[in-house]
Amino acid sequence: MLVYTVRRLLGAVPVLVLASILTFVLIDVSGDPLADLRLQQPPPDPSVIQLQEERLYLDRSMAERYWLWVTGIGGNGDIGLLQGEFGPSTQSTTYDIGANIAERLGVTLRLVGAAMVLAFGLAVLTGVVSAMRQYSKVDYTLTFIGFLALAMPTFWFAGIMQSAGVGFNELVGTQVFATIGDGTYQAQGQDLWGRITNAFAYMTLPTIVLMLTTFASWSRYQRTSMLEVLNSDYVRLARAKGLPERVVIRRHALRTALIPLTTVTAVGMAAIIDGTVLTERVFQWRGLGEFFIAAVDSNDSYALMAWLMLSGTTVIVANLIADLLYGVLDPRIRYE
């Protein structure tokens, strides 16, 4: 097990390197960071463009630039992933990519964490209930809600929730739900209770939006795998030898039925990052989603790369945890 863990950790390094090359090349080929400057009217002085090219290391070849971006050897001290520098930005000379990400990380993590925990709990619960009461009214209702959530575009649902929140506020006459912003500024200088109510006001709607978009597919998988297990011989045996239903469900069925969900959850990690970008845009949070959109809009390739490496690492870690859980949950799988 330990050997396997270490091997997987080491295995994750080439994957990350490969992914970084793939994304670096794709980003580099697909866009020119100075496209907007070159199209400016009246045309800027060639020396201005040349200066910008030197600042962004665009005067070097792609391979050199990748090497520089990773190691920072031969740069101006503002580039080199291994030295903790993410590279110069097109947005301004003083825009520090690393500091900006660090500043926004907390805002986004708060949202993602709350949504993930809620979604996972709800998915397991509804999936198991649906499977145990297959073809009952409960099952049909839950299945329909799941399907509806699965079919709902995150941003459209967010828009509806936002106008519903505004409507609710008007109805009760006070501002219960905040529909714009992340509330970081408003929380400053407040006591604990003030912070809690503030967080509730700002987080409720976006968390519901993000939760509902991921919970549905997890719940579907949970139902499918639970059904499969409930129809299997060993569960029939467990029932036949007179075990209480509670034990059959919890110890025999659920434990096996959770295995596929671990993979799905790790896959869902990436979907959650996607959902965050959309949710943050609708509710105008200053999180990593907004950082990403700004980076794409201004052709900021180093900022994009930093963002993609961060999300890539997150997903890799999630996958690794899922694989390790596979071994813990399923005794049939042996890692030699």
Binding site: I273, V315, N319
Partner: peptide
């Protein structure tokens, strides 16, 4: 490992980054 490379980039973000640039 090849699958992993494609899995670790969030879909929407990646396609948006590519077609956005």
């Amino acid at each position: 490992r090849v699958v992993d490379v494609f899995m670790i980039v969030p879909l929407l973000v990646m396609v948006a980054a590519i077609s956005g640039t």
